[in-house]
């Protein structure tokens, strides 16, 4: 007899892997990492604005998932749970970074990433323009409070719906809309400022 849970597991292989890890068999954990690493690395990079920090953050996300495998509640997708862990980790990183900057241990420049276009063979004029847009966007995102930043990144760059963003952040859809609206107001103001 096929149960609902069985069907859900069949649709989400990561759920099966997590159940096995919780039981002490981590044989499939590498596959779970492989299936989710690209999305998590991208999310962390977009939230933190730094590929090296993103690598550490993604690694920490997987380690937390490994340690907490037994506490995973099989309600939603494992990928949503991983997104949540990654987002919370990155937001904590951002808070720590702000504290460090406030105390004066790190200069502001350290937060600003070097943004280089990946293909140097592209037209130099377009390349310059792209670099300018990326930098402007990065600066605008970096000025957003963590809550607004996470909503904007998840909706705009990860392509999540309001409902999915709400699930990841464990907030209501109304709160998602509200944060996104405020974020857009700030972004518009920053874009006007930059001309």
């Amino acid at each position: 007899m096929v149960t609902e849970e069985g069907l859900a597991e069949a649709h989400d292989p990561d759920r099966v892997v997590l159940a096995r890890v919780a039981a002490g068999d981590d044989g499939g954990f590498g596959e779970l990492v492989e299936r989710n690493q690209e999305r998590l690395l991208h999310l962390c990079e977009r939230l933190l604005g730094n590929p090296e920090e993103a690598r550490d953050a993604a690694q920490e996300t997987f380690l937390k998932a490994y340690r907490k495998a037994a506490s995973f509640k099989p309600r939603g997708q494992v990928s949503t749970w991983l997104y949540r862990i990654a987002t919370n980790h990155c937001l904590n990183q951002l808070r720590r970074r702000r504290i460090v900057r406030f105390v004066g241990f790190a200069p502001r420049r350290a937060e600003e990433p070097e943004i280089d276009p990946p293909d140097s063979r592209a037209d130099p004029g377009r390349e310059h323009e792209a670099r300018r847009r990326w930098r402007r966007t990065r600066e605008a995102i970096d000025r957003l409070p963590p809550g607004q930043r996470s909503v904007l990144v998840l909706a705009k760059f990860e392509g999540l719906s309001y409902r999915q963003v709400a699930e990841v952040l464990e907030i209501t859809e109304g709160a998602v809309e509200s944060r996104l609206f405020r974020a857009m107001r700030r972004i518009e103001a920053a874009q006007e400022e930059a001309g």
Binding site: P51, F62, P117, W134, T137, R138
Partner: peptide, 21 residues
Amino acid sequence: LELPPPAPVPVGFTGRVVARA
């Protein structure tokens, strides 16, 4: 709103994560 394409997944990332886990 545009950001540069994200960096590719580092070589050996999966192995390092599993070993650390």
